[in-house]
Design a protein around this nucleic acid. Structure first.
Length: 220
DNA sequence: TACCAGGTCCTCG
DNA sequence: CGAGGACATGGT
């Protein structure tokens, strides 16, 4: 087993299934990590909204914003297209960067009302959707095999010794995609597990003593 | 109090 | 291209 697969198996045994992408169950207002797959435009759009709102922001803050949107029954492409920009900004305030993000949600709503199954390249051309957001949308909303790279992924795998800290997004993504089977469930779970390891152990100043993958880290 | 969090865009050299 | 700054709230 290659190192990337081995680390996946350890993380999975350590943390278990993460239930991504968190979504709001029917007739509720708060998103939950229940591992439900999106099955309609409404649910895909909630994931798209979450992927934009969580840019450089903790998920806890995004949950508050999504709660506000749910309360106002706004998680629909047409509603986001029509709502007043300032009103939208005030509702998503807890997620931070709310002026920029309100604009991004508007642009995304316009885009997804015309593109029901977008290519990666098309997503990247949308203002407000960079590589991580594009891949999150492709993987979690559309169930396509794109591995999501984020700040934790670079931090963890450069510390381990698998890449340099300044490796390019697509280069690290290729490394994962080459070393894993093209399995949506694994791509889904692995990224979520990386986030969990990053939060609990591989923090800015790492807590190495009890790290579940310390034996695979170059530091040891 | 300062720093950090599931990034991206814009500007400038 | 790549570096540097702006964007902003809530938790520790």
């Amino acid at each position: 087993m290659n190192q990337i697969k081995k680390i996946y198996s350890i993380l999975y045994k350590t943390f278990g299934p993460q239930g991504w992408w968190p979504m709001t169950p029917k007739n509720q207002l708060h998103p939950k990590h229940n591992g439900v797959k999106p099955k309609n435009d409404r649910q895909r759009f909630e994931i798209i909204i979450g992927a934009i709102l969580t840019q450089n922001t903790s998920w806890k803050n995004v949950e508050k914003a999504i709660f506000n949107l749910n309360k106002s029954k706004l998680i629909e492409i047409d509603k986001i297209k029509k709502i007043n920009l300032k009103k939208l900004a005030s509702l998503i305030k807890p997620s931070g960067y709310y002026n920029q993000k309100a604009e991004k949600l508007k642009i995304a709503a316009e885009f997804f009302s015309k593109n029901k199954s977008p290519e990666r390249q098309e997503l990247l051309a949308v203002k407000g959707i960079g590589p991580e957001t594009a891949d999150s949308i492709l993987l979690y909303a559309f169930q396509k095999p794109f591995f999501v790279i984020d700040a934790y992924t670079k931090r963890i795998f450069s510390r381990i010794g698998i890449c340099k800290p300044d490796i390019k997004y697509e280069e690290l993504q290729d490394k994962f995609q080459e070393n894993l089977n093209k399995n949506i469930r694994v791509f889904n779970e692995y990224h979520a597990l990386i986030v969990e390891l990053g939060k609990q152990f591989c923090t800015k100043t790492p807590k190495c003593s009890n790290c579940p993958i310390k034996n695979y880290c170059k530091k040891f």
